[in-house]
């Protein structure tokens, strides 16, 4: 066999099968309002929003090395922007969600300039301080209900759609759309030049720097874009909840702890990880939630065990056993003898 017999490919049979199956599942999910009950749709909507949050956090921590424990800053910010823009500026809720994303990006710029001065774990705690500043700041705004918060006026809720069933379907579709948009955006971003630069930085910051990759700028872009999306997801979350308060909007447990557990359990630094993690998280929650605090303790223990024993999470275990990649990022050399057994797999 000569060198010409080998070819380099990005895709694989597993990825093509996954794409077809994914398309079918997506059609099925879009049709959910016609086959699912109200409670199920609510649950699935929540699941999609968590999937979006987890994918975004994974992009930051798993690829850009920006471990934040303060993403609740942008969830809450987005939620509050939805309320402020619809109540005081008279915007349509969907326009408000889009604008919340832009405002989130703008807010994140000075924040990034400041907290990028902190390294590693201190960066993490710095992001938490920022979230606290946001929480305490919004608690001072009396027009938004101060510390006790406020509800979205009925007129605004009705402007989304006059019938309740239609509103519920719409907010379900928005959540589904957000999840698909975020996962697709993360995937396409990681395939782009910028994304490859990011992977290079993660693998070796020193070497990437010497190759002329502007590390600060790349991380900065990731932080700002992630913040914008997170703010939009936040707006969607509180469009579902219809009520906002500083403690709920900036909850470190709800918007960061759970998200981190999802990513760690599913597999950090992989696109598939957050998807699996979200499914596992919701499965655990639906079966163990009655246990209350015990459930959270179990979740913490599981996350620690996974981090120590299987740092690439459930997806890492699956991938190492079956050499699967559903969202192909890296290029692989395919030997001529078979399509499925790569001669060399430089994984990403």
């Amino acid at each position: 066999m000569t060198l010409q017999d080998y070819h380099v490919s990005r895709t694989s049979r597993a990825a093509r099968v996954a794409a077809v199956l994914g398309g079918l599942v997506l059609v099925l999910l879009i049709a959910a309002p016609w086959w699912a009950g109200r409670a199920d749709m609510r649950l699935m909507g929540e699941l999609f929003l968590y999937l979006a949050l987890a994918s975004l956090w994974n992009l930051m921590a798993g690829y850009a090395g920006l471990v934040s424990v303060g993403q609740q800053a942008y969830v809450g910010f987005g939620g509050y922007m939805l309320f402020a823009l619809t109540m005081f500026a008279g915007l349509h809720p969907i326009a408000a969600i889009a604008l919340a994303g832009i405002l989130g990006a703008l807010a994140s710029i000075p924040v990034a300039v400041l907290i990028f001065r902190l390294r590693g774990a201190y960066f993490a705690i710095g992001t938490w301080v920022i979230a606290e500043v946001f929480r305490l700041g919004f608690a001072q705004v009396t027009a938004l209900g101060g510390g006790s918060g406020s509800s979205l006026p009925v007129a605004i809720v009705k402007s989304l759609a006059s019938k309740r069933a239609m509103r519920e379907s719409l907010s379900y579709w928005l959540a589904l759309g957000a999840a698909v948009l975020v996962v697709a955006a993360v995937y396409l971003f990681l395939r782009s030049r910028q994304g490859l630069a990011l992977t290079a930085i993660r693998d070796n910051e020193l070497a990437a720097g010497s190759l002329g990759i502007d590390i600060w700028r790349t991380k900065f872009i990731v932080y700002v874009v992630t913040s914008a999306f997170t703010a939009m997801i936040g707006a969607l979350i509180f469009l579902q909840k219809l009520r906002i308060s500083p403690d709920a909007a900036f909850s470190v447990n709800d918007w960061t702890a759970f998200v981190i557990f999802i990513v760690v359990i599913g597999g950090i630094g992989t696109i598939e990880g957050p998807i699996i993690g979200t499914l596992v998280f919701f499965a655990l929650r639906e079966t163990l939630a009655d246990l209350g605090t015990i459930y959270l303790i179990v979740l913490g223990v599981v996350a620690i065990v996974v981090m120590l024993k299987a740092p690439k999470g459930i997806w890492g275990l699956i991938r190492s056993r079956f050499d699967l990649q559903l969202f192909p990022l890296g290029y692989r050399v395919i030997a001529p003898s078979s399509n499925s057994a790569p001669a060399q797999n430089k994984g990403t």
Binding site: V67, G120, A124, N253, A257, F261, I268, V301, M307, L308
Partner: peptide, 13 residues
């Protein structure tokens, strides 16, 4: 990541 995420899990526990 490991020290950060393990101590974070510990915090929740």
């Amino acid at each position: 990541l490991p020290p950060l995420l393990v101590t974070f899990g510990l915090s929740v526990i």
